[in-house]
Design a protein around this nucleic acid. Structure first.
Length: 597
RNA sequence: GGGGUCGUAGCUCAAUUGGUUAGAGCACCGGACUGUCGAUCCGGAGGUUGCGGGUUCGAGCCCCGUCGACCUCGCCA
């Protein structure tokens, strides 16, 4: 007999009755009847009821066992009898009568119970992540994550992709997020950087002729956290393909995403390929966002023309000064109390906007600003937006960027409040035709709006002849239920176009040569046209596990301040280590106190 | 760095307008109990109400400061 177990805690059935078995696991739950006690023994696989009675030698020990202690039991499998079966447990037909119980590892008093699904403060959970991971939901999330990753791998390989590992210690790059820096011991004053993504490496793999690359790639970015953004590190299904157009990339990844979402959907519906393509500009207008949640049926309209030079002076004046008006319909919300409209307006003000005007229709009769606007213009509005006799409509009037943003937030809020968000579905779309550049108000200059390695639509000719802010890129995002899963592009593989593109953003050739040396050099020796993308693995699992917080699908996440409370990272290091690196800590002496030396 | 919410027993929460000794459930300790599966019943221990200051006859509650957590803006492929 194996020293620890003959079966998993999930395995035993009526067919095992009469056998002598050995099980090992954690004391999940104990029910003490004085002369008879029950232990629910749990391992990774499941739970089995163990019963011990007074005449057993194991009784005293079992009685004193603390929850979550690790034990090994040995005994006979008994049938429970019809009235005692537990239908909620796969092993509920049987129990094991313990002849012997061995304590393998005793547990101290727990900071929170493992049993049940009550919520506990994250700080305690993160500090005791190994305990939290024992709990059913988190344990299941992590298993799901593993299954999703193997499914992604299998599907990518089936599509003709090959997996490669790329370096973790690389060079700092000037664009994009803040890098994590790693000081070099050998080269004083120089630093490695952890890759924000294996962007240049995967492009070099294309130049190297590997045709189709993928990797479940760790990415490191020293930026602040959000609920859907883990601080420090995360994983992407990074992939790249040679000799492809944008449509080829879509055709390659759509079945992978559809397949994996369908596989783990548990009955939820999934958009079938091809996913809808929405131009960036259209998305900003209709959904007020570049990551629209298509479960929300509300569509925003531009109604600037209806308010222009009209009697509603606040808006008319603002339009003259360059504002636009975006209208957000609130289907069948017309008869709602005035408080619904006022609160929504107040919410907009709390968000830092000027507010939301509204009209509420009741039986076709418009309230709110309807009388300020006048019957003729209200009629135009109803016609243009196709409003029903009991609809409400909100108006955001601001400069185009802000108006779109407010309209987008209002769309989400109204859709949620009116319970219009379709449940149990994954709605995918592509956002395409992103602008190549945008205007940075802060620095008063043109900057890359996304990845600087994207190919501008129209290539060199567009760069030379068009207003930079009018140039579109072969740049695309995958969005699912309002969450940006992935960003990708057809890359710029021609050095002369690359130099020109960077020149427009204010970098001269020497900067490109220095900062992107490896890649620009490679492009001079025959580079295939190529493109790819990189869906976020954590976010995919988050959606499939239906978790609003990304930390619930990561084994050992850091907290919002990028600290690992369990391991104590980041930490001070010894003077010796610092000396070797020739690093001196300067600045706030309170903060540079170094207990590690 | 800014804004919001929160902070009471190991954990989840309660405590009337500011008013006697800050309560309950789970967990823990002791006792009873041979069919439970969130076992049940009886008892016990457990608190500098995050921390510091202020107002008051009196503060968990009001005021100021500070620390921490989460959410968010900035930031971010």
């Amino acid at each position: 007999m194996h020293v620890y177990r003959t079966h998993f805690c999930s395995e035993l059935r009526s067919s095992h009755v009469g056998q002598t078995v050995r099980l090992s696991g954690w004391v999940f739950r104990k029910r003490d009847h004085g002369n008879l006690l029950f232990v629910d023994l749990r391992d990774h696989h499941g739970v089995t009821q163990v019963v011990v009675d007074r005449d057993s030698d194991a009784f005293a020990l079992t009685e004193s066992l603390k929850l979550e202690s690790v034990i090994r039991i040995e005994g006979k499998v008994l049938s429970r009898g019809a009235d005692k079966v537990n239908p909620d447990l796969p092993t509920g037909e049987i129990e094991v009568k313990a002849a012997s119980v061995v304590l393998l590892s005793e547990a101290a008093e727990l900071p929170f119970p493992i049993f049940g699904n009550a919520e506990y403060p994250e700080e305690i959970r993160l500090k005791n992540r190994f305990l939290d991971l024992r709990r059913e939901k988190l344990h299941a999330n992590i298993v799901l994550r593993s299954q999703v990753i193997s499914s992604l791998r299998r599907r990518m390989i089936d599509q003709g992709f090959t997996e490669f590992q790329t370096p973790i210690l690389t060079a700092s790059s000037p664009e994009g997020a803040r890098d994590f820096l790693v000081p070099s011991r050998i080269h004083h004053g120089k630093f490695y950087a952890l890759p924000q993504a294996p962007q240049m490496f995967k492009q070099l793999l294309m130049v190297a002729g590997f045709d189709r690359y993928f990797q479940i790639a760790p990415c490191f970015r020293d930026e602040d956290a959000r609920a859907d953004r883990s601080p420090g590190e995360f994983y992407q299904l990074d992939f790249e393909m040679s000799f492809v157009t944008q449509e080829d990339v879509f055709a390659a990844i759509e079945p992978v995403l559809y397949g994996v979402f369908d596989e783990f959907s548990k009955g939820r519906s999934v958009t079938k390929p091809p996913f809808p393509r929405i131009a960036y500009k259209e998305s900003m207008l209709k959904y007020g966002s570049d990551k629209p949640d298509l479960r929300n049926p509300i569509v925003i309209s531009d109604v600037t023309e209806i308010f222009k030079d009209g009697p509603f002076a606040v808006f008319a004046k603002s339009i003259d000064a360059g504002s636009v008006v975006r209208a957000i319909p609130a289907p069948n919300a017309g008869p709602r109390p005035r408080s619904f409209f006022d609160q929504t307006n107040q919410w907009a003000r709390d968000e830092g906007f000027a507010g939301l005007a509204y009209i509420n229709f009741k039986g076709g009769e418009g309230g709110g600003i309807a009388k300020n606007l006048g019957p003729e213009r209200v009629a135009q509005l109803v016609e243009k937006m196709g409003l029903g006799p009991n609809d409400g409509v909100f108006f955001a009037c601001d400069k185009p960027g802000n108006a779109a943003k407010l309209a987008g937030l209002a769309r989400t809020r109204v859709g949620t409040e009116l319970d219009l968000i379709e449940q149990n579905t994954f709605k995918f779309c592509w956002i395409v035709d992103f602008p190549m550049y945008e205007w940075d108000e802060l620095d008063q200059r043109v900057i890359f709006s996304h990845n600087p390695f994207s190919m501008p639509q129209g290539e060199m000719e567009a760069l030379e002849s068009k207003d930079p802010l009018d140039i579109l890129a072969y740049q695309y995002d995958i969005v699912c239920n309002g969450i940006e899963l992935s960003s990708g592009a057809i890359r710029n593989h021609k050095p002369e176009i690359m130099y020109k593109a960077f020149e427009i953003a204010g970098y001269d050739q020497s900067v490109v040569d220095e900062k992107f040396r490896g890649m620009i050099n490679a492009f001079k020796y025959g580079a295939p046209p190529h493109g790819g993308s990189a869906p976020g693995v954590d976010r995919i699992v988050m959606l499939l596990a239906d978790e609003p917080n990304i930390r619930e699908v990561i084994l050992f996440p850091m907290n919002q301040k990028a600290e690992d409370l369990m391991m104590g990272a980041p930490s001070y290091v010894s003077e010796k280590q610092l000396r070797e690196l020739r690093i001196a800590i300067v600045g706030d002496p309170k903060k540079s106190a170094n207990p590690g030396s």
